[in-house]
Write a protein that binds this DNA or RNA. Structure first.
Length: 393
DNA sequence: AACAGGGGCAACCGCTTGCCG
DNA sequence: TCGGCAAGCGGTTGCCCCTGT
């Protein structure tokens, strides 16, 4: 069955010839494509408008990158896919010059197989059952759960598609707390794809800030793009304009924070277990954001204060009662801060001049709200298990 | 050299969404 | 509010090419 638009006319199907390509390119460069259904007629093509549109978007557009995917692109796809699932168009938006079709094909033909080969379920990014059995067999007990363990013990795990594609499976603080506390020995996250291997049995995907926990923090691997080279890792910061300046740093690895703002931001009572679980969740989100945002995309979506310079700024802000942004002028090679006005649903980004961005951003910028929404952050979005978190915001 | 099988990729199909009258 | 149309999107198909036998 052809397209409804195709049924009205005799259209050619199959591969496009160079002549057809040339006609389409010439027509669009001269007249644009205000209405795709009229393009084939005006361009002199025996194709349906839909086919023309696809050909243009996936192949003829001048801004397409083409060629093999870089390691960074691959990592981005994996990280964003872990959050968004098979939303190829959304994923492709984080890869300039790549189309959803290209990303989808690359995933199906390459990444998917790599994940499976490493014992990961490409849908959930969890360890496959066989791998879990193998890895959980005699592992040493460690209360610090890694991502795979965290997800495995959440409510979703597998089964129905929505849950399966949802990277976060906390159904409630209590459930998360329980899941976290009874978590069996963690398994190592298979190496190479996530590119972060810590030399400890914890298998954490990300180290935490060594400014606080230098002795305990696992070192980040050399070359990991979001570290300071001193072993420091990710750090998330929150501030609440309603409550005055209220910045905090989160120590995800150890399930604690330098202030109570995590619970405050979550709109719930203090709960150590939840803080730990929430930390894992936020860490995951941070990973995705940090990886998904590419230089030069016009999107400065970073909710992560990075490395110790950022931490110092945040802490100083608390002490001085000044917005952390006021303390971030110069001196740090990498610093970032997000200011969140929950009541007005406004998120401002300020100065994220890190290697991640290639120094492309300076001054207030727009946060990647679309991505946040996709992730179901801040009670937004629908269809994501994270929505079920009783966040009061 | 011929054939079979598999992988990769371009294109298609059909459902969903958004816009407009 | 509803229906029609166009665009967007994800899943699937089928062709082509490469590699192994």
């Amino acid at each position: 069955m052809g397209h409804h638009c195709c049924s009205k006319q005799k259209v050619k199907r199959g591969l496009w010839s160079p002549e057809e390509d040339e006609k389409l390119v010439r027509h669009i460069s001269e007249h644009g494509h205000s209405c795709w259904s009229s393009v084939p007629k005006h361009a002199g093509l025996q194709r349906c408008g839909k086919s023309c549109r696809l050909r243009w978007i996936n192949y003829l557009r001048p801004d397409l990158k083409r060629g093999t995917f870089s390691e960074q692109e691959e990592r981005t796809i994996i990280d964003v896919h872990r959050i968004l699932g098979n939303r190829w168009a959304q994923i492709a938006k984080h890869l300039p010059g790549r189309t959803d079709n290209e990303v989808k094909n690359f995933w199906n033909s390459c990444i998917k197989k790599k994940l499976i080969a490493q014992g990961l379920d490409p849908k959930t990014h969890n360890l496959l059952p066989a791998s879990k059995t193998l890895l959980h067999g005699g592992g040493a007990a460690n209360p610090r759960s890694n991502l795979a363990q965290f997800q495995t013990n959440g409510k979703g795990g597998g089964g129905a598609a929505p849950a399966a594609t949802t990277p976060f499976t906390i159904s409630s603080p209590a459930a998360a707390k329980a899941a976290f506390e009874v978590a069996p020995a963690p398994a190592m996250v298979p190496a190479s794809l996530y590119d972060i291997v810590v030399p400890s049995p914890t298998g954490m995907l990300m180290a935490h800030d060594h400014h606080h926990r230098a002795a305990a923090a696992p070192a980040m691997p050399a070359g990991y793009p979001y570290t300071d080279g001193n072993g420091g890792g990710m750090l998330m910061s929150f501030s609440d304009q309603n409550a005055g300046v209220h910045a905090s740093s989160m120590d995800f690895l150890n399930g604690s924070s330098s202030s109570s703002s995590m619970d405050h931001a979550g709109g719930m009572a203090n709960c150590n277990g939840f803080s730990a679980s929430m930390g894992a969740f936020m860490e995951e989100t941070a990973t995705m954001w940090a990886t998904a945002v590419e230089p030069g995309m016009g999107v400065a979506g970073m909710f992560v204060a990075q490395q110790q310079q950022g931490l110092v700024v945040q802490e100083e802000a608390v002490v001085l009662g000044r917005p952390p942004t006021a303390l971030m002028n110069g001196g740090g090679s990498t610093a970032g801060c997000a200011v969140v006005d929950k009541s007005a649903s406004v998120v401002e980004m300020v100065d994220v001049s890190s290697a991640v961005y290639g120094g492309a951003v300076a001054g207030p910028t727009a946060f990647d709200l679309e991505l946040m929404e996709s992730c179901g952050m801040f009670c937004g979005g629908a269809g994501n298990a994270i929505d079920q978190l009783p966040w009061d915001c």
